[in-house]
Amino acid sequence: MATDTVARDVSSRLLNQEDIRVEAPTLVTRLRRAGAYLKDMGGELWKSKLASCGAFIVLVMVLVAIFADVLARHDPFNMTETALAPVSWEHWFGTDPYGRDIWSRVVHGARRAMVISASAIVLGVLLGVPLGAVSGYYGTTTVRIAGRQLRIPLDNIIMRLVDAWLAIPGILFFLLVVAIFGGSDLVLIMALGLAQVPLLARLVRGSVLSEKTKEYVEASHIIGDSNLNITFRQILPNCLSPIIVQASVSVGFLIIVEAALAFLGLGAQPPTPAWGADLNEAKNFMETYPLLTIFPGLALSLTVLGFNLFGDGLRDILDPRQVEQ
């Protein structure tokens, strides 16, 4: 998926944002600024039809994930004698070959998709953002090891690693990781999360590079703030927008990857209620009971649609040049 291209696009557009702040802001002002920023964003979001539509879908899916236990009308694991039942009041989406309620499984599948992709993206942000910030801010750094001055091209090293990482096409990386370490949830979250690191790192690096030259950074230097302080407490909060956009687009992508792996039989295993795994089982019944293939796939597509619309809308809002209407 071309999320990295998109990300490159976004970061390059964001390079030229005007910023007139000169003084080093205090924590309170920074928080206030972040609050106002989020409020602005919310307002803009409301104005964009597509984005609010996406936000609505995302919200619904999050709620479904949270209240899966309430919404599921049956135990998603419970096998009954009513196998392959058609759609009815009792079974809204029918039942699967083991007599399990498909509605309940789809609802619990939403929880799984959300938890895995959200955990992964949090992991990715936690690792990728500092990495990108360090890479962008420090460039080449000198350290003293055993009394000798050593120039370490930190930026170069990190970016080569990122390039190498990005050269592994598509789903291949995940396939290999799962083949080697197994398809447990922890491995999935780690792999999906780590895979987001390069993109985010590159994105943040770009933003930090452009922020670095601004006056408020120089002001902080003059005041005598430490480099670490400047990077993480002053520059980073100003690079939030691309991170948020990238994260929301990535969640959609991660949900697809998780489902695809389970579909290949490499991630979630039956009887875990997971969309991809359920689709994998359903494919054996395509000819005789096609309904099985429809509902988990619809849920999956709808969720991804939500995150994509939301991400696109956000991008439009955060990058005024892109808005044409």
Binding site: F77, Y98, Q269, P270, P271
Partner: peptide, 19 residues
């Protein structure tokens, strides 16, 4: 194995099925 897992649940085991 999925059906068997159900039987094990019925006598009180919590089964972690790994296919």
């Amino acid at each position: 194995a999925q059906v068997f897992q159900q039987h094990l649940r019925q006598i009180g085991f919590m089964v972690n099925l790994k296919i």
